[in-house]
Design a protein around this nucleic acid. Structure first.
Lengths: 210, 210
DNA sequence: ACAGAAAAGTGCGCGCCCGCAAATTTGCGC
DNA sequence: GCGCAAATTTGCGGGCGCGCACTTTTCTGT
């Protein structure tokens, strides 16, 4: 029950942060406002988030770790590791849909928020490590960790590229007009890592059937 | 000449930061002290570094980008890409030697400094990207970028592991007693990425000789 | 139900970060 | 050398981040 309340507070804080940022623009939101809107003290706010940007993007990226873990768990063991990983990640960026469209627009527009958003990608490393380790048979968790970190790095590269190209293509209509879908970009970006994932998988297989 | 003076100021600042941190311990160094020691205003200090930690670790990691670029340039084209990259990186962590031994001890001891130190690894991405792109023939800079980012991520993983294991093995004598050499750990950690580097190299080769 | 422990929230205070605009220094053409 | 433009430095002011000690809330065992 403690845990529940904690998550509730955290969510209230990031929700308030996002709402206020959308209403007045991020630069016109004081930390005090966010804390007050969530009904906690400023100090408590800082116990949850160490920057305004973090609080705002958390409203969008909150349960990504869970979602990644679920997406990996959904892939049956039959499919190759590389495909499983790549498609699990692509899933993350196809589902979001409507609710946070203007939120994403806000984030991708302001440099400070963009940076904070990109930084959140690191959060997928842990679930990815576990999932990959599972596929590899837990024989070498070290390899799983390296591969997960590499995948996260590649996703970051894809995001940066996408943000850079779309930064100039945000039209007056207020809608993002990406030059190509982000899922495609993700697949292209992750492709160079497939050989590494395949090799690890094969080696694990070899180790299981010597 | 402007550029010279700027670099001089930067170096003076990080040198002062490191010296003071070593003398009094990092927590007893005010930003004002660093600025004063370097003969500039506090505000100028903040134009160069956005945190005390950054200034301190910069004294050790300053020209890493240059060194990585040089190490990659030294490898002849004959050697495989994977080997070239791995050995170029290993070079970075075998050469340092004496001058900053106590500095490194300080950095690896304090959590805040450790984090800042680990964060500096991202700086190798750019030179690595260029070098890899060179080896791949500039046909697909995107792939080079992804591979460089992955390598950097792997190095970060190696560092984190090394820091974690050595954190508990710092003895009363004040000397680090790593459980195995860091270069070996680096090679092991980077190994899973070799297939990806090889595959990219082969593909580039195929593209050059269709 | 109650006492004590453990954890979350809070007020205070210090120092740091950084935008802004004015002052100073540097670079360049004459 | 001189003066102008560009770049760098600086002081100021506001807001933020966080350690610390303390209060309040929640959990646990009896």
């Amino acid at each position: 029950m403690r845990e529940q309340k904690k998550q509730a507070t955290r969510e209230a804080l990031s929700a308030a942060a996002l709402r206020l940022a959308l209403e007045r623009g991020p630069d016109n939101v004081r930390v005090d406002d966010i804390a007050e809107a969530a009904g906690v003290s400023t100090r408590t706010y800082n116990n949850y988030f160490s920057s305004r940007e973090q609080a705002i993007v958390a409203a969008v990226t909150g349960e990504r770790e869970t979602r990644v873990a679920a997406a990996m768990a959904d892939r049956p063991d039959g499919v190759g590791l590389a495909t499983a990983v790549i498609e699990a990640i692509v899933d993350q960026y196809t589902a979001p849909g409507e609710p946070g469209r203007d939120a994403l627009l806000l984030i991708t527009t302001r440099p400070a928020l963009r940076e904070a958003y990109v930084d959140t990608i690191g959060a997928i490393e842990h679930p990815l490590t576990d999932a990959i380790a599972g596929h590899l048979g837990d024989t070498d968790p070290h390899t799983a960790r390296v591969l997960a970190a590499s995948v996260a790095a590649a996703v970051r590269v894809a995001l940066e590229r996408w943000l850079r190209t779309t930064a100039t293509s945000v039209t007056a209509g207020g809608l993002v007009v990406p030059s190509g879908s982000f899922p495609d970009l993700l697949r292209t970006t992750l492709a160079p890592l497939a050989p590494a994932l395949d090799a690890a998988e094969q080696q694990a297989h070899r180790r299981r059937h010597p």
